[in-house]
Design a protein around this nucleic acid. Sequence first.
DNA 1: GCCAACGTTGGC
DNA 2: GCCAACGTTGGC
Length: 149
Amino acid sequence: MPAYWLMKSEPDVFSFQVLKSRGKKGEAWDGVRNFQARNNMKAMQLGDLAFFYHSNEGKEVVGIMEVVKLAHPDPKDDTGTWKCVDMRAVEELPRPVTLVEIKDNPKLAKMVLVNNSRLSVQPVTAAEWAEVCRMAGTSGAAKKPAKKK
DNA sequence: GCCAACGTTGGC
DNA sequence: GCCAACGTTGGC
């Protein structure tokens, strides 16, 4: 069973659209300089899914992505302290879910996003994942491996 | 642009 | 090992 995460970025710096343009290979999620966030990335498994949240501009969950490479040394870090994972875009949400909507939903009151907005890589429970997907108008990439073309 | 909250650093 | 000071993040 895959775990769920939420990762955020300022769209000015790195947006979901940019990640999408990287295709299946994805892109290294580097630049994280926070121990909690790093530890969360270390815990990620291949195939784990994550929401892409745009901070500052937009303040909304805009897409779903997947872990395609396990935690490895951050190429932009000389000290060897920091790690990153590679992510690829899976699906752009039919309807972005804003921070306001998340805060308004009692089911999501315990989300880390609400309580610790500064953590850039955070875990999401299965229930929260399902709820945000429902609000976004998607079934959530994980639940439809049957859909082959 | 401001400010509150948090994490990290460094002096003791 | 504690805690004050500082820097950064991110919502408003």
